[in-house]
Design a protein around this nucleic acid. Structure first.
Lengths: 228, 228
DNA sequence: TTTAAATTCAAACGTACATTTCAAACATGC
DNA sequence: GCATGTTTGAAATGTACGTTTGAATTTAAA
């Protein structure tokens, strides 16, 4: 790509790679500065602390992705008749893939980092995320609600979080899965291929019929004295 | 519960709680031994190392869960006509809930730990898991294959891992989600309630129609010179 | 009660970490 | 060319970690 990278740029590039691969706490500043070929102290000089470096790494993608998503959501909300669920979910694809312009494999790396941010406890990351971009996601909830008018709000809440888990976990273990898929099925699957496979899965899942409430405890035999 | 706990027992109890909450690497032996009110050195005395403690924590549940699952899978495989997908998935429920006999909230804690084990890189955990219980899960794949005969094997591979992500991530953030659900929808949801909501979601997802392969790159405008 | 093994305990060890320090190198405007 | 502000460099600081040690204590068998 470019011949000259600033120290900050080199740090961010090395950091995102190592963070995505090994997680935030399992990656040391020494690994990062060594891969970036810069001095150890430069991280604290340019970013203040490791915590702020983590946020800077995520910000590079969020500042590109979130306005794009917001724009798409707003466009869909302006349409007269409600959109289908698959239409709603599809708007994620282009903005995500455009992260590849921010950095090579940007889409994959960003989603991996997102997964790390949610599973590594790191309280400050959730706060950082919700505080800055919470209201964008409110529009998504509204859209899904319009697409699935029969879904009770609480059920929708759970299913959206189920779906977040699907995406985030898949991306976190993306490399391992892609390796197995290639070894076992001779299929070379990139990030685009994974997203393509996720869409029908998530569409069907979110729109699934709501279960009739059958308390499972009945399946476990009770004491005879409890009968009738 | 019981009045007298052995040191090993106290260590395991404290360790599983902290591991589930904060992850393996973000939990120190000093935190564990302090919560367990035992001496720091007793971990290495009883378990050898932190790595072996992690495996011991998981083993307590796996030795109960896996034989039960194996038994259920074998039973379903013996049936003449193939089982429905929802029948197959339902066999997880009872064995999982029976982990609550191993320890209070055992089912939730085990699933949280499973999530940690898959996202914290910890290579030794994946090896440990696949090496000991790999062939049990092969039966599951076979059952799902019978329930969804039209699903190509590679698609099934991806969807099972999507589903693993759904479950594991949901359980990892279970506490936070349950709190929100109670605050926003006045719904008290326990682990059984979550599993009940997961089943129809996963059934619909795994059995979703396979997408017709439309390369998404077409959505991104190409150079004019590339047109026919 | 004696004795030997098992367990607990306080302390220390060595290592890796994030962060700080301060002098050297570099760039930039005058 | 000099002065000033910015960035880099090598070294040190203090903290937290997993693990080890050896003596003290408890346990249980003889």
């Amino acid at each position: 790509m470019s011949v000259k990278h600033s120290t900050q740029h080199k740090i961010l590039d090395a950091a995102q790679t190592l963070f995505a691969e090994t997680g935030f706490t399992d990656t040391s500043l020494r690994q990062i500065t060594s891969m970036a070929e810069v001095n150890l102290a430069s991280v604290n000089y340019h970013f203040g602390s490791k915590k702020e470096l983590i946020q800077a790494v995520l910000q590079r993608y969020l500042v590109v992705l979130m306005p794009r998503l917001d724009q798409e959501f707003t466009r869909l909300l302006a349409v007269q008749q409600p959109n289908s669920l698959s239409q709603v979910l599809s708007v994620f694809v282009k903005p995500l893939l455009e992260l590849n312009k921010v950095h090579q494999n940007g889409a994959r790396i960003f989603l991996q980092l997102l997964g790390r941010g949610y599973t590594d406890v790191q309280g400050h990351l959730r706060w950082f995320f919700n505080h800055n971009y919470g209201r964008v996601l409110d529009k998504l909830v509204l859209l899904v609600q319009q697409a699935c008018p029969d879904l009770p709000p609480s059920e929708l809440f759970w299913r959206l979080h189920f779906s977040l888990g699907t995406v985030v976990f898949t991306m976190a273990s993306n490399e391992a899965l892609a390796e197995i898929a290639e070894a076992d099925f001779n299929e070379k699957v990139d990030i685009e291929g994974v997203i393509l496979r996720l869409l029908p899965y998530l569409s069907a899942a979110i729109a699934a019929p709501v279960a009739t409430v059958t308390p499972l405890s009945h399946a476990v035999p009770k004491m005879a004295s409890e009968g009738i």
